[in-house]
């Protein structure tokens, strides 16, 4: 096994290359995918040609619609939405069409497609280019939602998403794109619906998504110096959700904290908290602590942006609150 370290961007691009070589039904469309704004699709056109790497006019809804139509008729499209925020432009197609026709046709139609979408706050992009909207896709039926936090996870999840027969939203946090991580040379897949324990601990179960996984790990290091051992779990996909891994951890810690960069109100944390209240009630020794972005438009100034988004300090405090060590 090699110890190669590559960036998140390279990992995603490798997933595309491998899957496009493997299956000629796979193609990519989106705005400027030939050049590749964030690099995940750059240079693919050279190998796969303009028929399989297609620049679209500036219209997210029709582009996602085209992906749905192509997916229903035998291809396996990947459509890129350049910024997560722009998913709302295509929300009608994603929510009302892509996720529903397999069911409505009683299985006669399949919609095997991926919506690849860089998202999240990186400082300086401001309103309209910085939101984390993954939780908005928990609500419509029929969709799967992946939120990788490392290059390794990104590659393995994207390959599975491309091979899945359902529409999969694939969120790439822009703060992670340039980060490096261990990715083996050998081919591997990560199934959708399998959480990863990023750090073991016995005192508190801390569920974190996407870019907040790293903040959670740093917070856990700090808390460890105070004798508090935090278990950090990255669910990796919100739908399907690996409830078992989280529950197993909770049966050890009895304390649950959930952090995401998406908005707290009605977010993934709200869903997980509801699951905890319904299904894991007897394993809660304290109220669930839920962290997310405040319900305000994301402002431009880096100082204001940081004030909206959960920080490492916020996570430390939430863990202490969970343990009754801070009100």
């Amino acid at each position: 096994m090699s110890h190669r370290r590559i960036t998140f961007i390279q990992a995603v691009r490798e997933a595309f290359q491998e899957e496009m070589r493997r299956d000629e039904r796979v193609f990519i469309l989106g705005q400027d995918v030939r050049a590749g704004i964030f690099g995940t699709t750059s240079k693919l056109v050279g190998e796969f040609g303009e028929d399989r790497v297609i620049n679209t006019p500036i219209c997210e809804s029709a582009s996602v619609g085209a992906a749905v139509g192509a997916a229903m008729t035998g291809l396996r499209p990947v459509v890129q939405i350049m910024f997560g925020d722009f998913n709302y432009l295509a929300m009608e197609i994603t929510a009302n069409q892509a996720g529903q026709w397999h069911y409505l046709s009683d299985g006669a139609l399949k919609v095997p497609m991926v919506i690849e979408t860089p998202s999240g706050a990186r400082g300086g992009a401001g309103y309209g280019h910085s939101q984390s909207l993954e939780a908005a896709f928990i609500l419509p039926p029929g969709l799967k939602v992946a939120v990788p936090s490392t290059p390794y996870d990104a590659k393995g999840l994207l390959k599975s998403a491309i091979r899945d027969d359902n529409p999969v939203l694939f969120f790439e946090h822009r703060r992670l794109l340039t980060q490096r991580g261990h990715v083996p040379e050998e081919e591997y897949l990560i199934p959708l619906g399998q959480a990863d324990i990023k750090r073991e601990g016995k005192d508190v179960t801390l569920v974190a998504l996407s870019a907040t996984v790293q903040k959670a790990l740093s917070a856990a290091e700090r808390l460890s110096q105070q004798g508090i051992e935090v278990e950090v779990i990255d669910p990796r996909t919100l739908v399907p959700l690996d409830k078992e891994t989280i529950f197993k951890s909770l049966q050890k810690t009895y304390h649950l904290v959930v952090v995401e960069e998406g908005r707290r109100r009605g977010g993934f944390g709200a869903e997980l908290t509801a699951i905890a209240a319904e299904e894991w009630f007897d394993t809660l020794d304290a109220p669930v602590q839920r962290l997310g972005t405040i319900s305000a438009p994301l402002p431009y100034s880096p100082v204001l942006e940081a004030a909206c988004i959960p920080s490492e300090d916020d996570i430390v405090r939430a863990v202490l609150r969970s343990l009754g060590q801070e009100e």
């Binding site: 009895y254 009630f281 007897d282 809660l284």
Partner: peptide
């Protein structure tokens, strides 16, 4: 109505 005592669900279990 029983007397209200605050107890965490896990502690009660």
């Amino acid at each position: 109505k029983p007397r209200r005592v605050n107890i965490s669900p896990a502690a009660r279990r």
